[in-house]
Design a protein around this nucleic acid. Structure first.
Lengths: 376, 376
DNA sequence: GTGGAAGCTGAATCCCCTT
DNA sequence: AAAGGGGATTCAGCTTCCA
């Protein structure tokens, strides 16, 4: 397979370095359960695992504009039954436990399709859950049919080997990474796209579920020390290896698919250690969070039934349970109804609509600021 | 226990109203497994459950299954507790499944201590997960010892009774509540505090894990219709009942602790339902009556011979006497011709095709709405 | 070169009634 | 019961192309 590497890297130089000779780590070819059996017991400091999710997708899914969704339909994600997935999960988690040092830790990422089975198995195998972490995607795929909530997050489980294990947690590093606030259990990070996303020679994505380096960066920075050995039993295109190398950690990747191994080897060979650019890619989201008007309805600041008026009291509109307004024939969001009444293409409902308080008109925007102040 | 109610309520008046006489719902005293057994099968539209998960304090909860916790040593105790918690979870989820209508749904909230066991049990019992929702707390308790990430979220599981069930989801209402964007699976809501938090006579919180009404508001608005019956088998101080009453839903709460029942009864008695008009939400198009395009041709709204165009005026099509379109080689319904021209598998002809009126393009959908309004 | 419009894409358990 | 067809449905970020 001829791989096109990201622009910032140097393919020619990368190919000259034999992947197996990378001093910081190695890629093992084969099934992770069998290959973990060959590793010495209690030799690994941290395991990061991104196992198949067992998505169980149905037929084709089309976007509203007509395009077809490029679904994950690879053979490696198909299992005969829920019970078969359970057996697979417990088998690899058992081997993972054997190779893990007593004070080591494991991270597993998944979605609602599999993470509950994984979590239950971890607990049954006497792992001790330290946190569940929510990766909130800033740019998830929408729900095209309007049938459910946008599936906008994935879940990571962080476990020690036992309740009393002395696991590694670089608290101050995490706090520093988060503008001197304690790092929370919900992480907002974009999905892997753009130049970071590995492509094959035809411009198709090299792996259907490549994880962003920012995610691994945070995990490895939080839970390992320089020189620690990180094992990824579902290596894929080697995000774990690339970030481990960059951060000066040792790494071992296990992968069955030759094409993924090849992509990972070239990628990691072209990665330079101690490059702090990944640090910069983690967004410091200090901008004000967006507030939906519906939130003020839910939390009782502007209860359903409230009557809103414009600044000149020309229009009145009633707030409904879902945060929409109704005013004669007009119904919809604060912005849409304002635009409809004004016969304008758009309208800022936050400044257009007011609540009457003790004889004075208070714009919705003031209530929004009040709400934001309450959160701070 | 003498409970002090929130400021906005009127204790004296509340006590005069016999709780059992609330027309919108009732509180059942007792263990939820036993009491659910007495409810008729397939009678409940929605279950919201906030089960206990503190294994240390909850030992006697597991008596219905007969297993008594015998703390020989820590390891045995923990194993026995985990297994007992599993049995307890599967027991109440089984009864819940029995009382649920085939097209009903269940929500369960939990933290990493129990939600993985709950999720695995739900899947084993053939519930079908629709989403996992992350309640991202805007003001969580910090991790004082600096040993883990701040545990800043809880998880809710939303499941249908089977894979092919026709569950209720008010997509448009959720979109309205979120400023005209699809509602995502991560919800940012503050924890229950301030005047909303019920206190006992000594100023202590009446219940250790009282949920915010905003959380229930969103769940019930998304997944029920007015008049639906909502069951909460772990009623506590009745947040589910209060919000159900406010939104015009019927409710049933099951609670073992007399003090919680008393607090819930007083709280709900003092809650007023919303005005009917305020309870309205943006309707889903799917629930509106069908209009055949031919009807608009028959009644002269879009006479045969009218030329339709798409929004970008790239295509033109003539309306024929039977309401079909013809456009070059394409002929058929407004949808079929639109799909053919777009080379798409399908197309919504109502929004694709437009009529020119005084230089402006009016989508057929607007004419359909006009027609429907004329009938009303 | 630059700015804007238009197109493409991401771990997705994605419709429902009539014949 | 399977098939056919009406018709409901998308957000953010990056890339490409054209003016």
């Amino acid at each position: 397979m001829n791989l096109v590497l990201p622009v910032r890297e140097a393919p020619a130089r990368a190919r000259k370095i034999a992947p197996a000779a990378d001093p910081s780590g190695r890629i093992i070819a084969g099934d992770c359960i069998e290959e973990m059996r060959k590793l010495p017991a209690k030799s690994i400091d941290l395991i990061f695992a991104d196992p198949p999710y067992n998505l169980q997708l149905g037929g084709d899914l089309f976007r509203p504009e007509g395009g077809r969704v490029d679904a994950v339909d690879d053979a490696w994600d198909r299992f005969d039954s829920l019970a078969a997935y359970d057996r697979f999960t417990r088998a690899w988690l058992t081997e993972a436990r054997r190779v893990l040092k007593d004070d080591g830790a494991i991270w597993v990422i998944g979605s609602y399709h599999n993470i509950y089975k994984v979590g239950a198995a971890l607990q049954d195998l006497d792992y001790w859950i330290l946190n569940d972490i929510v990766w909130r995607k800033s740019n998830p795929m929408p729900n095209f049919r309007g049938t459910r909530f946008t599936n906008a997050h994935e879940t990571l489980l962080w476990c020690a080997k036992s309740q009393d294990a002395k696991y590694t947690f670089n608290y101050q590093a995490m706090k520093a990474l988060n503008d001197d606030l304690q790092m929370r259990s919900d992480w907002v990070l974009p999905i892997c796209s753009g130049s970071e996303r590995l492509k094959d020679g035809l411009g198709h994505k090299a792996h259907p579920t490549q994880k962003p380096e920012s995610l691994l960066y945070r995990v490895l920075l939080a839970c390992t020390k320089p020189g620690d050995v990180v094992l990824d039993p579902f290596f894929g295109t080697g995000t774990t290896g690339a970030v481990a190398k960059r951060l000066g950690r040792q790494w071992i990747g296990i992968e069955r698919e030759p094409a993924y191994r090849q992509a990972a080897a070239e990628r990691i060979a072209a990665t330079l250690p101690l490059d702090e650019s990944a640090m910069e890619t983690i967004p410091d989201k200090r901008s004000q969070p967006r507030v939906a008007f519906g939130l003020l309805v839910e939390n009782g600041m502007v209860p359903a039934g409230t009557v809103l008026v414009d600044a000149k009291r020309r229009w009145k509109a009633a707030v409904r349970a879902d945060g929409s307004l109704s005013c004669g024939p007009h119904a919809g969001s604060i912005h849409k109804v304002g635009a409809g009444l004004n016969k304008a293409p758009s309208c800022n409902g936050w400044t257009f609509w007011h609540v009457e308080k003790r004889g004075r008109l208070v714009p919705l925007d003031a209530l929004r600021q009040e709400h934001l102040a309450g959160l701070a």
